[in-house]
């Protein structure tokens, strides 16, 4: 009973400290006279403002059908008429003369805001980089323990160069040097830099995972007639994969966080869109807290998925 009581006490301490911290943040923001404007944030995540439909040319409104919510505009220069099949509110009447870019009508509905766009870009960037990093890491890890000296030295050189230089510098090299030579767009250069960087770390994780498997496993696999490749695929790698999941999870979470660095080559990821929204809302505290929360959602889901995977693989323990 006594131990039970103590546990409750310490849980209460934890909650109280958290509440205290929250209050501390609130109080300190009061002291610097900061006005919180959380209400400005949601529209940058999902925008519900009506969207304007603008005229693509100078012309005359031929007809506005209020009942069917459709409209036809004829161009002055001749050619095909501009037809709006569906609108919610008309800004013009039949017979009006309009110029290029004039708002003709509005449609309601929600749109993805810049912060959510940034989140999607970060997700896309991290996911593609994750796939490539795993492939690069697997092959480099295998090359690292190969009997062939050439393969081994290539792997060591690659890992040492990548681990010995900052990611930020690598991103610049990938974008300005390799990107210029191979004519890569920003996104490809960003993905390449991230996957080459993370691949080097994954290679080391996979190498240590394979080397941690008892040599008897390879011997047993070979003794029942498997070749090196089969023994790797069916016996060693499944065991090594299970053992390397926790460090792999850490590395992949790092990849998501490191992806924020690609904003330096003007990829509008979550971090860069955060910066853009700050400049239009003047609410930096709120925006950066929101951005942090979104990164937390991404990394949290990834570690949840990996935990599930770990649980499923532990059936043989």
């Amino acid at each position: 009973m006594k131990e039970q009581h103590n546990l409750l006490l310490w849980k209460a301490v934890f909650v109280l400290v958290l509440i205290g911290l929250g209050f501390g943040i609130y109080a300190s923001s009061k002291s610097i006279d900061y006005t919180w404007r959380w209400e400005r944030i949601p529209q940058y995540i999902i925008s519900v403002e009506p969207k304007d439909i603008r005229s693509p040319f100078d012309g005359t409104v031929q007809s506005v059908d209020i009942k069917n919510h459709s409209m036809v505009v004829l161009p002055d220069q001749g050619g095909n008429p501009f037809v709006i099949k569906k609108f919610d509110k008309a800004n013009v009447m039949s017979g009006d003369i309009v110029f290029e870019g004039d708002p003709l009508a509005q449609v309601n509905g929600w749109r993805v805001g810049p912060i959510l766009w940034g989140l999607i870009t970060t997700l896309k960037l991290s996911f593609v980089a994750l796939i490539f990093a795993m492939i690069i890491g697997l092959f480099t890890g295998l090359a690292r323990i190969s009997d062939n000296p050439a393969l081994r030295y290539f792997a060591i050189t690659y890992v040492e160069i990548i681990r010995g230089t900052p990611l930020l510098v690598q991103i610049f090299i990938f974008y300005f040097f390799i990107g210029t030579i191979l004519n890569l767009d920003r996104f490809t250069a960003g993905v390449a830099a991230l996957s080459v960087f993370t691949g080097a770390y994954i290679a080391e994780i996979i190498r240590s995972g394979i080397q941690s498997i008892h040599p008897g496993q390879m011997e047993a696999a070979r003794s029942v007639g498997m070749n090196y490749f089969q023994a790797m695929v069916y016996v060693i790698l499944p065991q090594a994969f299970k053992r390397t999941l926790p460090p792999l999870a850490g590395q992949l979470i790092n990849l998501i966080k490191d992806s924020s660095l690609v904003s330096v080559i003007s990829i509008t990821d979550l971090t860069k869109s955060g910066r853009e929204v700050v400049s239009s809302t003047f609410a930096p505290f709120e925006v950066w807290f929101t951005v942090a929360l979104m990164y937390l959602v991404l990394t949290g889901s990834l570690s949840w998925i990996i935990q599930k995977l770990e649980k499923r693989l532990s059936a043989s323990d």
Binding site: H214, G216, Q217, E219, A220, A221, R222, S223, V224, G225, M226, N227, V235, P238, Q239, K242, L313, S316
Partner: peptide, 21 residues
Amino acid sequence: NKMREEVGMVFQSFNLFPHKT
């Protein structure tokens, strides 16, 4: 590899594949 199919081996430490039933 072909030859090893003809020569079965049993080890001191069993060396069963732990991830398989």
